[in-house]
Design a protein around this nucleic acid. Structure first.
Length: 415
RNA sequence: GUGGGUGUAGCUCAGUUGGUUAGAGCGCCGGAUUGUGGUUCCGGAGGUCGCGGGUUCGAAACCCGUCACUCACCCCA
């Protein structure tokens, strides 16, 4: 049997209402916060991701779905959304349009990782990007949006971790200090961290290996090396969160994995998932526009892993508010008259269905029951001859005679 | 890329120290006389026991290989 590709998941009919619910909440909320939706391609030139995410990150090094186009240019299925949004913003000069500086998006992302609970090779994100300002209150807005999104979905026991990793300059100084501190301790670190020492020393702070956590306990804290501007920015963000009564936990070891982050970084975790406990994360990326040859443009955004959110949803949102009318047509004349009625009801905007295989009233009602119909409309030869139908309430079993002429109006009047 | 766990019906799972035609529940299809569903009763369909090899008189079970799924590491949302 043909199976789906490893790490890819079908969203089956019984799950799609949950997805629709999440998307509706996200769209409504983002719009309330002044964001507009942008829809960008699912693949881009490989160079875009290589330049924005960072050449030494795992994503670029080994997780991208990259393939040659027919003309030989290298294309890549998008591993995240921010790079594509920034590219689109530059390409269409959206920064010049005041209504296009706060954007949100939905869609599938692709990373070639080993699948695991809450991690797939094709996964879906909801993300927002606020462009063009580094005012600390925009950071607060973005985080507040993320926090309110999860709260509207009823997610419990979440923790907001927040940190500032400073500007590129701040970090330059800090990394020197950090390396100086680590140099004599190198032999104690895990193999991975020994490699990180030269590639991405910041990540060593984030290492989960106990030995590394222990040896870096006394490591210099990045906050201490922040410039005055960065430090004030960070405290302003924290004060803003406090003012909005959003609880946070400062985590000096929170280092985002993508190179383009700067200053504010944050993530929200849940204790009810497996190892992949981050359901939403983001940060400021003031240098990304320039890295993509755009004008200096501060920006901040987040991305939510929707599969992980689905895993946390307890309520099953069976949005099925529109009553279903089942057309039970049988007999030589009744069957064909019923099919015409079915079409008439649908043209009038009524939710209606039938079962072509069922030919006896018993079989038809059984189908009506299985489809969960609120009403059945019984139309046999007797009814067809008298130009009527029987409108049966499936729950109360009450039936009434209605003329074919009036049935549509009657249903519409009672909906 | 590395390690652990698991593969029996559409789904969830039984299956004795290796022993005849491999089972249950749910689901699906049908029947219980006339044009009335759900409950009940009865019947039916559906399985190369993941795949390939080996041991054996005999393998769903034991051994080897392989694939898939899954959890974890790495990393990330």
């Amino acid at each position: 049997m043909l199976r789906s590709v490893k790490g890819l998941k079908d969203i089956l009919p019984h799950q799609s209402s949950q997805w629709q619910h999440i998307e509706t909440v996200a769209r409504t909320l983002a719009t309330q916060f002044g964001f507009s939706e942008i829809r960008i391609p699912i693949f881009e030139f490989t160079e875009l991701y290589a330049r924005s995410i960072g050449g030494t990150t795992d994503i670029v090094e080994k997780e991208m779905y990259t393939f040659p186009d027919r003309d030989g240019s290298s294309l890549t299925l998008r591993p995240e959304g921010t790079a594509g949004v920034v590219r689109a913003v530059l390409e269409h000069s959206l920064l010049d349009s005041p209504t296009s500086r706060k954007l949100f998006y939905f869609g599938p992302m692709f990373r070639h990782e080993r699948p695991q609970a809450g991690r797939y090779r094709q996964f879906h994100q909801f993300g927002v990007e606020a462009l063009g300002t580094d005012h600390p209150l925009i950071d607060v807005e973005v985080i507040a949006l993320l926090w309110q999104f999860f709260s509207l979905l009823g997610l419990k026991d979440l923790t907001l971790h927040i940190n500032s990793i400073g500007t590129l300059d701040d970090r330059g100084d800090y990394i020197q200090r950090l390396k100086k501190f680590l140099t004599p301790l190198l032999p104690d670190l895990c193999g991975n961290c020994q490699r990180r020492y030269s590639t991405n020393p910041l990540r060593i702070l984030d290492c989960k290996v106990p030995i590394c956590q222990e040896t870096t306990k006394e490591a210099p804290v990045l906050i201490d090396d922040l410039s005055e501007d960065s430090r004030i920015h960070f405290t302003d963000v924290l004060d803003g969160l406090t003012a909005l009564e959003i609880p946070y936990s400062i985590n000096h070891r929170l280092v985002r994995g993508l190179d383009y982050y700067s200053r504010t970084t944050f993530e929200i975790t849940s204790p009810h998932l497996g190892a992949q406990s981050t359901i939403g994360a983001g940060g400021r990326y003031d240098g990304l526009f320039q890295a993509l040859q755009g004008p200096p443009t501060p920006a901040i955004g987040f991305a939510v892993g929707l599969e992980r959110v689905i895993l946390l949803l307890t309520e099953h949102h069976s949005i099925n508010p529109v009553p279903l009318f089942f057309i039970a047509g049988f007999g030589a004349v009744g069957k064909s008259r019923a099919f015409k009625l079915l079409h008439e009801l649908r043209q009038s905007g009524i939710r209606a269905d039938t079962d072509h295989k069922a030919n006896t009233l018993k079989a038809l009602l059984r189908s009506a029951d299985k489809l969960g119909a609120e009403y059945s409309i019984i139309l046999g030869d007797d009814e067809a001859n008298s130009e009527t139908v029987l409108l049966r309430n499936m729950q109360t079993k009450v039936q009434e005679i209605v003329t074919l002429k009036e049935i549509t109006q009657k249903i519409l009047a009672n909906l």
